[in-house]
């Protein structure tokens, strides 16, 4: 019986491997390639808008005065938010890219251990709500984005970063501490 099971499993693996090989030959193009190109274009548009909106703000340089750092951050956030008053959830991610993100985030969730899943929500207050143009609350931690997951995501300019917080996937402006786009319910909501 055991031998039969082993043989069946081996056969199954062989078929899977053959299918994967054939599939790779037939479909060498990333099905989300166009979405990624479009997403990058929207990110570039954001960066242009950001540059324009903040052109009059001085560059941030190292300082001993943290008041200057927080003032610059605030001014940057206000200028960007003012320039994007009508921005709404999904504007930068876009519908097709959002599908891709939900797919890889669902895979990421499945790959996590129970401890990992629990750690994701550590120190995150219940009923957290995050919206576009909101200042990211400085009193809650920036949950670490797994390095392997980051490798699957399109690269961003240094000014931007992805973040996972509670059930949200965010695009965050690092120096403005501003939520630029938000994808809700990428992970199960809090019942963990």
């Amino acid at each position: 019986m055991r031998m039969l099971l082993v043989l069946a499993f081996t056969a199954s693996l062989t078929v899977t491997a053959m299918s994967a090989g054939t599939g790779a030959q037939e479909s060498p193009v990333n099905p989300f390639a166009q979405e990624m190109v479009d997403f990058r274009a929207r990110v570039n548009d954001y960066m242009k808008l950001r540059d324009k909106a903040t052109a009059n703000l001085p560059d941030l340089e190292e300082t001993k005065d943290p008041a200057k750092i927080s003032a610059r951050e605030k001014a940057l956030g206000q200028a960007i938010a003012a320039a994007r008053q009508t921005a709404k959830s999904g504007d930068v991610f876009g519908p097709e890219m959002s599908k891709y993100l939900r797919t890889i985030l669902a895979e990421d969730w499945k790959s996590r251990s129970a401890a990992d899943r629990k750690a994701l929500f550590e120190e995150i207050p219940p009923n957290l709500k995050l919206t576009v143009n909101q200042v990211y609350p400085t009193t809650i931690p920036l949950v670490t984005l797994p390095a392997k997951l980051l490798m699957k995501l399109p690269m961003l300019p240094e000014a931007l970063e992805y973040r996972l917080v509670d059930h949200y996937f965010l695009l965050r402006d690092r120096d403005a501490n501003l939520v630029i786009d938000v994808l809700p319910k990428v992970y199960p909501t809090r019942n963990r």
Partner: peptide, 18 residues
């Protein structure tokens, strides 16, 4: 750290050179 705003890199006493 995960509790740190990345703009801390501009705080001179942390010597992160931005």
């Amino acid at each position: 750290g995960n509790h740190d705003d990345p703009t801390q890199r501009f705080y001179r006493l942390f010597n992160m050179n931005g």
